[in-house]
Each structure stands twice: as C-alpha cells, then as structure tokens.
Design a protein around this nucleic acid. Structure first.
Lengths: 220, 220
DNA sequence: AAAAAACAAGACAGATCCGTCTAACACCTG
DNA sequence: CAGGTGTTAGACGGATCTGTCTTGTTTTTT
C-alpha cells in the first residue's frame, strides 16, 4: 500500500460527506484527507505522512492546528459525526407524515448511504472496533454520537405515544447498527430494506396493545 | 500502553474461548497471545514484540510457524472463528424443541457471550472495520464466518417451512450483528434481549401468513 | 545414541512512525 | 512599516516496527 495519490474517490455520492465543496484552507484540507484515509484504511494504519501527502500540506501546518495524531483523530470523528448527523436528520426532516413514517424512512435514508460507492461503514463503529478499551476520547465521541441518535429516536417514540419509549429506541438502534454492519460486510445496500421490514413488524406489534387500533393495514 | 505482562484476564467466562486449558506448545502460546492482543488492542496497533512478550516465546519461533504478521492475523481469525462457532452452535444444539425455539435461543446464547467480562465484540466485525478494503485475506475469513452462520440460519428456516428462507436468514443476521455492536458499544448485554424481542416479532409475523395458524398466543 | 526438529535469546537491518525544529515565504492588520 | 499569523519544505531524532540471522539449547523422533 504505497503512499501515492491514488484513491481519488471523493465519496460525495449521497451528498452527505465533507466534499461538498473542495476545502481551500489548510486545516480543512488536512481534515478532509485525514477523514478519507482514517475511514478507509484504519486509524492506526494511516500515518501522518500519508495524510500530509494527500492533503498537500506541510507537516508543521498539521501540528500547528492539532497537537497530536490522537487529537486529529478526535477532531475527525467529531466533524464526521456532525456532518453525517446533519445530513441524516436533515433528510428525515423532509419526511412528511406521522413519526411512524419518519422512523421507517430512517432505513430508506440508510440505504441511500449504503449505496454510496465510497461507503465504508459507520466511522464510530469502526473506531470503537479498532481501539476498544484503548482510547477514551474515541469512546466518548462514539457515545455522544449514539446519544444524539437515541435522543432523536426517543422523540419519535414519544410522539407516537408508545408504551415503552426507551425500549423502542433501543430496538431501532439495534436495527440500524445491524443494517450498517451487514451492508458494510456484504456490500449489499438492500440490508436496509431487511431492517426496515423488521422495524415495520416491530411498530405493528407495539401498536397492537395501544388503546386505539386505528391504522388497519398497508403500513408498507 | 507499555509492553508488560498486564492483561492477565483470560476471558474464559462463558467457556467459549481458547483458554480452556493453557497451551503448552509454542505455536499455541503464540496464537493465544496474538488472539488476545489483536482482539483487545487492534491488529495494526499490536506489534510482534508485544505478542512475543506475552507468549513468552522467541521471535524466530513465531516466524518459523508463520511467514508474516498478515498470515498470523489470518490464522488467528480462522481459529477464533472456529472456536467461537463450535461453542455457539454447540450451545444451540443443546436446545430441545422446534427450530423456532433454537432461533430464539440464539439471542440467549449471545447474551451469555456479551456478559463475559472479556467480551470485545466479534473479531470479524472488528477486523473488517479496521482493514475494510485493505486486506483481502481478512475479508475472506469474515465472509466464510458469515457464511457458516447464514447456512445454519437457513437450515432452521427450512425446518420451519417459512416462505422466504433467505430473507429470514438475513433478518436474523441483521439482528445478531446489531446486538453485537450495540452490546459492544454500550457494554450492556441486555441488547441481546432487545434483539430477541425483535426476532420473536419477526417470527410471529411470518407465521401469520402460514397455512395453519396453530400457535395462538404466548410466544414469549 | 544419533539425527532432526523445535525453541530461546537477542543482535541486526531497513523501513516507518510521530513529533520537533529551522529557515524562509506570503498575507493581512494595525 | 512593523508585527503577527498561516504556510511551505524538509532535515532530524528517537522510538518502534517487521522480518532475518546467528548461536546454542532443548525436545522429540528414529
């Protein structure tokens, strides 16, 4: 795995990524290059020199903005998470209708994400998988990301007036994680639809013991 | 992260791991040490010297058995996968009753696994997360592992005479992956139960449109 | 007992890693 | 103009990494 300037892919297929417009200041160029390399080749396996090579910046510049590689990793995760969440929740906010529809739309948006040719899985899942107990900052970043997601899911569950709000959020979270991992491993975006069917089934089952059984059929 | 002989944990809580009996030949000692360090601290982050230090063997011995670190990684994944599958499917084979019960028992066995204090997630999920496109041998090992699992799931689905066998296997696989990742991130084994409830719901829904609606209620 | 294989201990080479440092250039602001 | 800031280019140090090699000891097999 040489150091050259291969890997030209910009992974802005679904428009969620950094690469909306090419970065012009050095800091953003470093962040963009680091994001790509960390996420595609791993955090430990990516050297500072590769990042500089790809970013086209000098080493002193990098260490002017970030005090260490660890801090750069934390910054990348933070930015990657925020960008992704803005994209993800933004897409979901476009969905009209009751919260139930928004929950199901989660999996349609996921499928868009999976279908991006540059899809490399969830940066946080990958980071925790790589560092596990090793890096506390990484765990905190992952926790924060998951918390954002759970909060959103809980809000939908409350709007739906489901009996057990936390458990529904947990269920959908499991489906999301499972879909991401399955799609990443198999390179098959349609796992999002499999997860969606499970979610439909779950929503139907918790609507059953609700007081009013208004919605009759065709939830699909 | 020094090199010392900390990390004495043997992670044989659920009895699934290598450490059933301490290895006595050098090759097994290397495999055991490499397994532990790779899975707990990452593949790239673990140096050959740490492995030798922990295994208490000489460097020449390692390179006598494995031609490179990459080959050692592949061997570890293969062994780890086989050990895990033997444990996992062995536990499931103990379950009496129809295939449906065995499917649900999957999540009980998973919870046992998650509760092991040395639980570090699925080695294959972690390896693919770290290498992604980088290492072909790793991907092949992960594919093979997943294939074993899917084959078992399909066999249960066939025994249950479900309409869409592949889709049911995919569904359960998504739930398994999701439970593993959620449990790994949150350190909360009870995500297995959340996944189990989703599986119950899924099984109930595909039993509905089966010809005979024998099973009335209480699938819990 | 003799031959062969496995193993220990560690020096060594070549590469790569992270991070610091110097020296110089460009730009904007006061 | 002076001064601060951001940037480039690359040398450099010290550490670490993978893999080879040598020498000799232990263990197993024949």
């Amino acid at each position: 795995m040489k150091d050259g300037v291969q890997d030209i892919c910009v992974r802005d297929g679904s428009g969620w990524s950094f690469a909306a417009l090419p970065p012009n200041n050095a800091r953003d160029k470093i962040m963009s290059a680091a994001s790509f390399l960390f996420c595609n080749h791993g955090f430990a396996a990516t050297g500072i020199d590769s990042i500089l090579n790809r970013a086209g910046t000098a080493k002193a510049t990098l260490y002017h903005h970030f005090s260490s590689k660890e801090e750069l990793i934390a910054a990348v995760l933070e930015a990657e998470g925020e960008t992704w969440r803005n994209w993800f929740f933004g897409r979901l906010a476009e969905v009209e209708g009751p919260a139930q529809d928004r929950i199901l739309a989660v999996f349609d948006v996921l499928e868009e994400w999976f279908a991006d040719p540059g899809f490399y899985g969830c940066p946080f899942i990958n980071a925790v998988a790589e560092f596990d107990t090793g890096n506390e900052a990484v765990r905190r970043a992952a926790d924060l990301h998951k918390e954002h997601l759970i909060t959103w899911l809980r809000a939908q569950a409350i709007e739906m007036k489901v009996a057990d709000v936390p458990e529904m959020a947990r269920s959908i979270a499991v489906l999301i994680d499972g879909a991401i991992v399955a799609a990443q491993h198999s390179r098959d975006p349609s796992f999002a639809r499999t997860a969606r069917r499970l979610a439909e089934c779950h929503l139907a089952s918790i609507k059953v013991d609700a007081p009013a059984r208004a919605t009759g059929g065709r939830a699909t």
